Amino acid sequence: MRILIVEDDAALARGIVSLLHAAGHAVDHVDCGEEALSVLATEPFSLVILDVGLPDIDGFEVLARLRARGDQAQVMMLTARDGLDDRVRGLDLGADDYLRKPFEVEELEARVRALSRRRGGDAAPEMRIGAMTIHRSTGRVEVAGRAVDLRRREWAVLEALATRAGQIVPRETLQAEVFGFDEPVGSNALEVNVTRLRGKLGADGPVIRTVRGVGYMLDRS
């Protein structure tokens, strides 16, 4: 899943980026509201982790503008404020979740996983496609009982395809979800990761089909 962190506390932002990178997500960071709106106008993100107390416009204004222009990215708001009115305001403006600072990293990870499942239309902690089981809460993958060791980008490719199993995922969509805009990306980087993933899933795993000129599709069987 591709995630944008909007947080002006540099140390906190670095920690969140590192944590979510390690969990297999493509993560980008900006430190003010106007830059967030600019980036979100041109780049696709599945989740925005949005601080309320930004130095230019606050997170509520960012959220209001996003929803006003029809942006459906999921939004988790972060705040040091403890007032019920603030939480209600954020949810009424269209936030999907609300997390109060300071927070434990395990809770942040769990909330991101829950939002990822909601985005895929399936709230279950496990996904089963043919002989493959994806344990979404731990990031483990098994094929016919065999553990599959995936690198971060391979996991991101698999998650993007598995949440849309049976559907064609355009190459541009897949690449946007796997790579952040600050990551160096070779012209064939996506193909390399798809090839590695196919090899690791093996003959018992679901087939990743190439739809020439369009993208990829993970078979349901």
Rank of each mutant, 00 (worst) to 15 (best):
V157P: 00
H21Y: 09
L174C: 12
S187Y: 15
S221E: 04
V214P: 01
V143F: 08
D82K: 10
Q72A: 15
Q167Y: 12
H25M: 10
L218I: 02
E106G: 06
D51K: 03
A160C: 14
T210R: 12
Q72D: 13
G166M: 02
L93I: 14
A124F: 05
P102S: 08
A68E: 12
Q72Y: 14
R117C: 10
L37A: 03
D97F: 04
A114C: 04
A73F: 06
L4N: 00
D149P: 07
P102G: 12
V105I: 07
E104D: 14
V112A: 07
V169D: 01
L150N: 00
L190P: 01
R151C: 08
A156P: 00
G202F: 13
G186F: 13
D28R: 09
S221T: 15
E61G: 02
H25C: 05
E191N: 15
E109A: 10
G213K: 09
G199R: 14
R128W: 01
Q167I: 06
D86R: 07
H29A: 12
V105K: 13
G145R: 02
S187R: 11
V62E: 02
F45M: 05
E61S: 08
E106P: 07
Y98G: 06
A131S: 12
D51I: 08
A22K: 15
A147N: 15
F181T: 08
G199C: 15
C32L: 07
L47N: 01
R209K: 13
R14L: 03
T138W: 09
E183K: 15
R111Q: 01
D86G: 09
D56E: 06
A64D: 07
I134G: 00
D51C: 03
F181Y: 06
P170S: 09
D122E: 06
A124T: 06
E191V: 13
D85H: 13
R14W: 02
V211T: 14
D9Y: 06
G121Y: 03
E177M: 14
I134D: 01
D219P: 14
G139L: 00
V27W: 01
R152E: 14
A123N: 11
F60L: 10
V143E: 01
A124N: 11
L218D: 00
A11M: 15
A144D: 11
G24Y: 12
T79N: 05
R164D: 02
V178C: 01
F103T: 03
R146K: 10
R146G: 08
G139V: 03
L108P: 05
W155T: 00
A124M: 12
A156M: 05
A95T: 07
T138G: 11
E43L: 10
T163C: 12
Y216G: 05
E7F: 06
A110V: 08
L115F: 09
F45S: 07
V75R: 00
I208C: 06
P170N: 11
A64T: 04
P184R: 12
D86H: 15
K101A: 03
R164P: 01
R128E: 05
P55T: 09
D31K: 08
A23P: 04
V207E: 11
P44R: 12
V62R: 00
S38D: 14
A26I: 07
S221R: 12
L54R: 00
A165P: 05
R128S: 15
R164W: 01
E107G: 07
G199Q: 15
V192T: 10
L66R: 05
R196F: 04
L78K: 06
D182H: 11
